[in-house]
């Protein structure tokens, strides 16, 4: 089992295009063992537009949040005092719970001296799975509209799937470098960072590399929409010992194809071989690390 997360820092650099193209390329080279694909961008999942899964299974994601029995509550304020997220407050003779602030840690329930709190499930989204293009085992999470917390959905999505021994798992991460990205990347063997040769791309790549370093995960870079030299990006990668594993040119045909829902390997089939080479390089890095 080999876990690869595709992330970027900056949004709109081509994470999903790269992740889906890599998935289809791996399926093409090992038809007996297609990869697993997890769309972890639960606030705006869109990998299904490229991989066309038939989502046959669904499961609600809920957090256990406190429910206060006002008959037993003495409004002592212990729950509000222990809540790190200020999700429960005692206001005079009322104890109020704020579900959108609650992280479901259970401290208030455990520490209530009157045992006036019980936990009730509060739905925040759904996880779905099914078979996609080329036999790829596809799964995704989707946060309900208006819900602010993506991490519990991602956590449950990652626990819900059981990769076969030797199966490659691709995690399509959300943009940015905040908690949902860290939750996606956690436990991965390799972080593939898709960037674009612009000051914005480089700025956010720096942040994403810090995440990789902090979590001690090997990383490599794909430069997308390359349009002439941008030495600052290459200098940064060289200084950080980050291999640039693929360069994708800025090209109208690619933009048009992606806008029509095609992956890069469907627009330019020669990329199947290139992605296979990218994968070999990643596998070599991971094996090298495991040997040490």
């Amino acid at each position: 089992m080999m876990k690869i997360t595709i992330a970027s820092g900056k949004g709109g650099t081509g994470k999903t295009m790269v992740a889906t193209s890599l998935g289809i390329s791996l399926a093409a080279f090992t038809p007996g063992r297609p990869p697993m694909f997890l769309d972890c961008d639960v606030e705006a999942p869109n990998a299904h537009l490229f991989l066309h899964p038939l989502l046959t299974e669904q499961q609600d994601v809920a957090l256990l949040i406190p429910s206060v029995d006002e008959a037993k509550c003495t409004h002592c304020g212990k729950c509000a005092e222990v809540c790190q997220y200020h999700a429960i407050t005692v206001l005079g003779k009322k104890t109020l719970v704020f579900p959108q602030l609650c992280h479901g840690c259970g401290s208030c329930t455990a520490l209530c001296p009157e045992e006036a709190i019980r936990e009730v499930p509060d739905r925040m989204g759904v996880i779905e799975r099914g078979l996609a293009t080329s036999g790829i085992a596809f799964a995704r999470g989707m946060l309900d509209v208006g819900e602010p917390m993506a991490v519990p959905i991602i956590r449950q999505l990652k626990r819900w799937v059981y990769p076969a021994p030797g199966q490659v798992v691709l995690y399509d991460a959300p943009p940015g470098t905040s908690c949902p990205v860290v939750e996606t990347v956690r436990g991965s063997d390799y972080l593939l960072l898709v960037t674009e040769p612009t000051p914005f791309g480089l700025h956010d790549l720096r942040l994403a590399v810090q995440v990789a370093n902090e979590l001690a995960i090997s990383a490599g870079v794909i430069i997308n929409r390359e349009n002439g030299p941008y030495p600052a990006m290459d200098e940064f990668c060289a200084n950080q010992n980050l291999p640039v594993v693929l360069r994708i040119p800025f090209e109208r045909a690619i933009a048009e194809g992606v806008a029509q829902g095609k992956t890069l390997v469907e627009i330019h089939p020669e990329y199947i071989t290139r992605f296979r080479q990218v994968f070999s390089q990643i596998a070599f890095t991971i094996e090298g690390k495991n040997r040490v």
């Binding site: 407050t89 005692v90 704020f98």
Partner: peptide, 10 residues
């Protein structure tokens, strides 16, 4: 880090 409004209301 979160829940500033509920804290101030308290």
């Amino acid at each position: 880090s979160g829940g500033a409004g509920t804290l101030a209301a308290q």
